[in-house]
Write a protein that binds this DNA or RNA. Structure first.
Lengths: 149, 149
DNA sequence: TTTCTTGCAAAGAGTTTGCAGCTTC
DNA sequence: GAAGCTGCAAACTCTTTGCAAGAAA
């Protein structure tokens, strides 16, 4: 059974990038925190727990590399920090986000939802879509329920 | 006939903010470049052409203020700079963007397009939507046509 | 007058880069 | 052994803040 880590390793190798312990540690952290939306600093601190000798610059360089390889997506919720989000394997489209204005939580929507909209945009604006970013800002279900009780 | 500038002035006054020449000059620049997606630095340089004594910090403070008043929206296309986009008057929803990966142009879509999607998200995720950000990355119609010729 | 606002310069935050040394293949 | 990678520190970019002087109501 080939793990996700293995596949990412292969992808690195196939583009003749070396698989260093630092890179592996970084990928592991990303896999272990798939649900989260970690900043470079977050990733750095988590990697440091297990590999204390790693440098912040290496984490930045690794994240940049993984972004290039489309293993992760670099996203920005407007708070001045870039966040890195593992791509869902096999997913054709980048997933969407729900950002709660109250508690700051970020939930993911894996469903596509934009199929029809994309068709309209491609036809009406003659724009060839390669990727998208969709984020809703509002009140999440948890804060919603809390407010009602 | 009340101009758009007048209405923005009133809005400032109604929240007991003072209307300084610097703020007026900044708003004017935004109105004159409604189609563009100016960064703070861009706005600063444009304001400076007519009011050379203005400081960059004032522009940042004014843009922050206008964002608070929902006169402009602060957006981020992932290039490390915040951009400021005048809200379409009367529009209930924030418009969408088409970012061309080839020439870097940013076009706007004023149509809503997300009505159905929002309904689904609100119902299925029990998420109260307050705002959204939708950006498509791809090839714009100009580059498209250029490539074909 | 009193409060708000400005410009400047300095500080801050996040990210990138140069470089010498070390690792991977 | 050559090419690539790393950690460190310094540099850089964008943005925010402290403060004394100035302007608006």
């Amino acid at each position: 059974m080939e793990s996700r880590l293995d596949r990412i390793k292969k992808q690195l190798h196939s583009q003749s990038y070396k698989l260093t312990p630092q890179r592996e540690a970084t990928v592991r952290v990303l896999l272990e925190h798939e649900e989260d939306h970690l900043s470079a600093e977050d990733v750095y601190l988590l990697v440091k727990e297990k590999s204390p000798e790693i440098g912040l610059a290496t984490v930045y360089r690794t994240l940049e590399l993984l972004t290039e390889l489309k293993v992760v997506d670099k996203i920005n919720f407007g708070d001045g920090v870039s966040r890195y989000d593992l791509r869902t394997e096999g997913a054709e489209h980048f997933h969407h986000h729900l950002v709660c204005l109250e508690c700051g939580a970020v939930d993911e929507i894996q469903e596509d939802l934009l199929g029809d909209v994309e068709k309209i945009v491609e036809e009406r604006w003659n724009f060839k879509i390669k990727d998208h970013r969709l984020t809703f800002h509002g009140i999440c279900h948890r804060c919603h329920e809390k407010a009602e009780s």
